[in-house]
Amino acid sequence: MVPLDQLLWQAFAVFLTLSVLSFLYKDNAFYKFAEHIVVGVSAGYFVIILYYNGLRPNLFDHLFEQNTWDPKAGQLYYIVPLLLGLIMWARFSKKWSWISRYPIALYIGIATGVSIPLEMKNRVIEQVRGTVLETGFDFGKTGMLGLPSGVWDVVLVVLVVCSLIYFFFSKEHKGWFGGIAKVGIYTLMIGFGASFGYTVMARLSLFIDRVQFVKNWVELLIK
């Protein structure tokens, strides 16, 4: 037996679900209500999460508490990030908004500095390594579609190079170079097609899930 409060909450959730779906016919007050309440509730939710899962354990506890478990308890230098965080709010003042550039600069410097070696490694070097070294070029082993796997390794290398050349705009896409770029654009189109096929499934899933939800609620009621 499902508790009554759960049943009522679920009924409310079903009501909200149908309110949002009613937008498919046309915009209406139910949809607007749902749209606006979720913005407020989500913002409130985020404030609470930021406090209990951010400000309090990572800052206030260190500054204001003397918990034995906390190796950073009472470390007054945590005032620095506190101040830097607070001056972010200077953005709201016309006169003082320039101060907020300091914390932003620190954040941007760190974020970009971290990303340079990691992006280079993961998206460039590792991808090149995967193309050349993870492919075995084994012509004795049967691979996809009944052909030797080495054949597909060669095809992969060729298609990667062609696709890269398509993105190379410093030389006009004409003659043999244009031909290679053409193979590249066809490869890219197959890639976009695969993404589209996957996306259709993704979008349909979202609606199927909502129908499943309503169906389960109705089943609860009947039981």
Partner: peptide
């Protein structure tokens, strides 16, 4: 999600 799945096959092949 299905939307991004096809984009991550390169990482699978490179064993990342």
């Amino acid at each position: 999600t299905g939307v991004s799945a096809a984009d991550y096959y390169p990482f699978y092949q490179s064993k990342q």
